[in-house]
Structures are given as C-alpha cells and as structure tokens.
C-alpha cells in the first residue's frame, strides 16, 4: 500500500530525514517511535505534503501513485489522512460545513455525486457515535476553543468521516488524559479493518497498549535504526531511548 524508499528531506536547508525506508501493507498498524527531534513529525509532514519540507531524494509510492507529485488535497483524496499533532483552530468555519466540503470534494475526485443532506446527516450521526464525540462540538467553528482532548477527538471523527486507506496519527496521544486517550484509541480501533493501514507516531508506549501495533520502528537522527514487533516498544519504555542511542553510538550531543 505504502512504500517509502530512501526518503531524504530537509527544511530550510537542514536535512532532517536521512534515508527512510518503510513498507506498509493493508490492515497493518506500524508504530514509529523515537526521541524529540528524531524526524517523526517531519516524516508525517512529508507524507501529507507540507510545502516547507523539501524532499531531496527518494520516492513514496501510495497505492501505485507517486504521491510526492501530488498536492496535499489530492493525497487526501487518494486516501491519505494525517491526524495533526496540533489541530488548527479556524474561527468562522463551521466544522460540519468543513467536513461536508472535504467529503464532497473527495467524492467528486472519484467521480461520485455529492452526498445529499440527509445521507450526510445520517453518516455524521453514525460516526459521532463511533468516536463518542459530542454533537455540540461539530456545530462550532473548527477546533475553536476546543480542549486538547476535544481537538484530538475531532481528528479521529474526521478520519471516521473520510474513511482513509492510510492514516497517520501524529502524536495523537500527546496532551491527552487517560480517559481521552482511551476514547481516542477505541475510536481508532473501531475504524481498523483489513483494507486500512495506520502509522502511529508517538513517544510513548501508552497509546500502543490500546492499538497493539504489528510493527514498531525506532527513528533516530532521521533514520529507522531498528524495527521489531510490539515488544520493542515495551523494551523502549523500560530502558529509554538511550540504549538504542548507545547501540548506534548516537548521543544527543552529536
């Protein structure tokens, strides 16, 4: 489904990603862990198409398409979804209108007619229940005045509505209390199936307890230095990143 080959990316001339390789198959959940500054969020940004990141080398194939050639909106329409680490507050744009527009632009891209009002409301209701999001949030402007947990829940709700083939959760667990984490994780779990894949970017083990990834990768200094199963995450939680840094003779000072 997703095949990342030797991606190098830099921002403002500084190289952050230094050759990432990753293959994701439908139905799989991959966790990418790593200390601050290792390039985790950069990877998410590069995949979603943030313009300030320049890909200097490598390729990304998503469902047979070179997505680096696509605009952010076309990537989304192809089925890529980035759950933002810091969802943006957009005063004056209603959440419902936003999601409806997004959904219909995606449908149009795939040659489908726009969803009529009744079907849209029905779909909203169904997905609202799925991710346990309060209806009142959706009548408000996008993320305006939302708590950290509400913002993340809104991301998962959008994911549910847009039904992406590949979701990247960029530190979705950061800033969440235990209850919010549980709700968000259970929302994600309900959206899992054999056709969809998820990449979870996180610092911590706790979200992975709920999501049970198939693979865990450790990102360090712009490279995936170690890959394993979920036991690797447990080991990291226990020993910290230093044991890997030592293993690869990398210390923050360098």
């Amino acid at each position: 489904m997703l095949s990342i080959k030797n991606i190098h990316a830099s921002v403002e001339g500084k190289e952050i990603l230094k050759g990432i390789n990753l293959d994701v198959q439908p139905g799989e959940v991959h966790a990418i862990m790593g200390p601050n500054g290792s390039g985790k969020s950069t990877l998410a940004s590069v995949l979603a198409g943030r313009e300030e990141y320049e890909v200097t080398e490598g390729s990304v194939d998503f469902l047979g398409k070179d997505i680096l050639e696509l605009s952010p909106e076309d990537r989304a329409r192809e089925g890529l979804f980035l759950a933002f680490q810091y969802p943006v507050e957009i005063p004056g744009v209603s959440t419902t209108n936003f999601i409806k527009t997004a959904l219909n632009e995606k449908r149009k891209y795939h040659g489908l007619p726009p969803l009529d009002a009744v079907s849209f409301m029905k779909l909203m209701k169904e997905k609202m229940n799925l991710v346990e999001i309060d209806k009142s949030l959706l009548t408000r402007s996008i993320n305006e005045g939302f708590s950290g947990g509400e913002k993340k829940k809104n991301e998962i709700f959008q994911m549910a509505m847009l039904e992406p083939k590949l979701t990247i959760l960029d530190e979705t667990d950061s800033g969440l209390d235990i209850d919010a984490l549980r709700i968000v994780a259970s929302g994600v779990n309900k959206l899992r199936d054999e056709n969809r894949a998820i990449i979870v970017i996180t610092h911590y083990q706790r979200l992975l307890d709920y999501l049970q990834p198939d693979f865990v990768h450790v990102l360090l200094n712009g490279k995936i230095v170690k890959s394993g199963t979920k036991e690797l995450a447990l080991e990291l939680e226990e020993k910290g990143y230093d044991f890997i840094k030592d293993q690869f003779s990398l210390t923050p000072a360098l």
Binding site: G49, S71, P72, P87, V88, I90, F98, T101, K106
Partner: peptide, 10 residues
C-alpha cells in the same frame, strides 16, 4: 494546509 490536508482544494 489543514483544510487542504482534508482534501479541500487550495
């Protein structure tokens, strides 16, 4: 970018 990342044209 947030809006575009959801599939809305620029």
């Amino acid at each position: 970018f947030y809006l575009r990342a959801r599939g809305i044209s620029k």
